[in-house]
Structures are given as C-alpha cells and as structure tokens.
Design a binder for these strands. Structure first.
Lengths: 199, 199
DNA sequence: CAGATAATAAAACGAACGTTCAATTAATTC
DNA sequence: GAATTAATTGAACGTTCGTTTTATTATCTG
C-alpha cells in the first residue's frame, strides 16, 4: 500500500506532535522509539520522516514551540502599568496557569534538555533566560521601590521559578484543589516570600 | 587475558557506582550504554555483570542509596527538642546541604524515576513520601501553634521542597555565592513564605 | 481526464543495544 | 605448591534502533 484514503499532511503532522508529546512526557525521549511513535499515530515509521528529518528535530520543535508560547503568553498577560506587586502577581498567575494547562510539554521541556545538540540547547536556554529576566526585573523594581525584601535578586528569582513550576510535579486538577485555589495559595506564598508590603 | 593484576572486587564495584552516577547525571540513564560505562571504569562490559545483574539493578541501587542517605541525614540532623520554627530551619538547612553535596545523585534521583519498574518505583516513592511527611508535620505543628501562616499544609510542603531542591539546578559553589550564603537566604525566604512570627 | 504532486507503505541498511557464556589468569587457602 | 576461588577478558547472541530507498496509491491541477 501507499498513500491512504483521506490522508492529510497537516493532520498527520499534528498527530505526530501530539503523540510525541504524550509518549516523551511519559517514557522519556530516549526511551521512545520512532516505531513506537509511528504505531501511536497509526502510520509506518518511514512516514514520520516526511515531517521531521530526525528524531531530534522533532524534539527540538516541540521544545521551541513550548518556549515561544510561554514568552508570548507573558507578553500578553503582562500589565501595561502597575507596580512591582501587581506585576509579580500577574507573573505568578500566568506562569502557573500556563504550565498547568501544558503539563506534558512542560515536562518534556524540563526533562529533555540534555538530548539536544549544543546549538539547540543554547537556543532553548536563551529563550528561558529571557523569560526569567522578566522576573528578575520585577524583583529588582520591587526591591528598589521598597516594596519587597529581596536578599539576592537572582537567587530569589530561581527560588520562585522552581517553586511555581514545581506545581505540575504533584498537582492534578479536579482533585482536592482547583487550579484557582492552587494559584491563589502560590500567589500568597510568593508575596510573603518577597516580603511584599502592599499585597 | 582474564583476571588482571591488582584487581579487587570492592574497588571495582565502587568505581562502577561512581562512573555510573557521573554518566547518568550527565547524559541520562537511557542514553548511557553498558559499553560506555565499562569504558569509563576501564573494564570490559561483561565485568559489570559480576556486580549488577542488570542495568536497572544498578540504577535502583544508586537511587535507594541516595534516598536512604537522605532519610538518615535528617534523622541525625533533626533537633531533639525545639519549636516548629527551629525544626523548619534545621530541615531547610539539612536539605540544602545534603543536596548540594550530592548534586549528581540528586539529579539521578529526580530525573530517572521513570526508568524503574513499578515495584522499585513505588519503593523509592515510599521513601520520598516518608521524608516529605516530616516537613508536613513541622508545618502543621507550626500552624497549630500559631507560629506559621499556612493555607494548605500539603501544598506548602511541596512548594518548599521544590524551591529548596531546585538549588542544585542553578547553583554551583565557589561562584558568586557560597553554600552558607545560599542556605542562609533560602532559610530567610522559607521563614517568610510560611509567615513565621518568631524567626 | 491526463499529468503532476502529496502522502504513505514495505523492505532493508548498518550500527548499537543489553546480556550471556566459556576461557583464562590472579589471588587465596590448605 | 597444588587446589580453590575471585576477577576479568573476548567473543558472540538475538533484538532493536534511527534512518534511507523505492514503489505505490490518493488527491489536486489544468
């Protein structure tokens, strides 16, 4: 057999992305074979190579898409005006909402960095660094304005990022807590963590 | 050739453990081959199987050793008496010191859970759960005593664990900050995070 | 409706994988 | 110093891996 009835390149590519995220999030990039992925999509292994030249290209596309979406999400959510307290609140809320909605791609991005080539790794890290810089600026602004108590801007930024990204490690919506409740509690903890005076 | 001059089972086993931790922390369990590991140790692949029946047995031993050491470390460091504030301070300090000293095994334990079989995974998770329970008890005790502000004990425990374990992701000693400075700042942030009244 | 193009299947490539087995040598024991 | 045990080598097993090549069929274009 060859081309199948109703086959569509765009749909197939989207199906490959979906299946790849699911499988890689669950088993890890190295543990997922192209044959396993093809079977999940319902296609022969060779068909994957029409859309992604190599396995690593596929991983890289998933990861860049995730990072670009994160940066775009914050650009949209960032308040046009407001003091550091309002900015930090918006940052934490957006960060948690984004990552809870994208548990699987987040997991892939956090776990599979070491499977990228040097150049691609540094591209992803550059995107990440730009995003984290936004948080550092908010913290510095709040500290300068006397709104926050921050011993070390870089260290505090990493602590907050680790804390809020860690939500996806343990949190499953529709259990004991809703997303809104979790986001709200993390917001309060973050404000206390930076010693916010006007939260 | 066969047995080599000066060969010693205990030394070889220790060398395998060391090399495995280094390689797995850097490249990931799935990406490290037994041949690569053997080459790092300076031995033929077959020699590894005298000490570890399978590749997964090796991983499991590394992970259980790490978790048992963590639990033992806290048992030693836990103050015999003291209120929740003192206990939480000791917990954070011990946790950070332990993990900074064992960056590589920590990385292996955090990243390679999915490469374990069901039974072994649940053994590791049980050890981890017991350790995290200690933190929850401290938080509950502090909240009950009116020393802490804690919206949700479980959620706060996970937030703190994620925050302090995240140290090893970005922190390298002998750079801008010393271990003591980092531990100190995390201690202060944790105390504010739980709204400690008497820190 | 013919020709071009898009989408896939089927089969195969060499390389690498975890693991096993038999042979061999070093160190220890009696 | 012979017998036993410990430690390792060298070679090989069958399997799976990512990827490529070629052929074949479906859909689109004029």
């Amino acid at each position: 057999m060859a081309r199948t009835a109703g086959s569509d390149g765009e749909r197939t590519q989207a199906a490959i992305r979906d299946a790849a995220v699911n499988l890689i999030a669950r088993y890890g990039y190295e543990a997922v074979s192209m044959r396993q992925l093809a079977a999940e999509v319902g296609v022969q292994p060779a068909a994957l190579y029409r859309y992604f030249p190599t396995k690593e290209d596929l991983l890289y596309e998933l990861m860049t898409a995730h990072m670009n979406a994160l940066v775009a999400s914050w650009e949209t959510a960032r308040p046009a005006s407001g003091n550091a307290t309002a900015l930090l609140a918006a940052f934490v809320r957006n960060h948690i909402d984004f990552h809870v909605e994208r548990r699987q791609t987040t997991h892939v991005n956090n776990m599979e960095l070491r499977s990228l080539s040097r150049d691609r790794l540094s591209t992803i890290l550059r995107l990440r660094a730009g995003y984290e810089k936004e948080l550092r600026q908010i913290l510095r602004q709040g500290a300068d304005a006397g709104l926050f108590t921050v011993e070390d801007v870089t260290l505090t930024a990493m602590a907050i990022i680790q804390m809020v990204t860690g939500v996806i490690v343990w949190f499953r919506p529709d259990e004991r807590l809703s997303v809104a409740e979790v986001t709200d509690t993390y917001h309060k903890m973050t404000m206390r963590l930076v010693g916010a005076r006007n939260a």
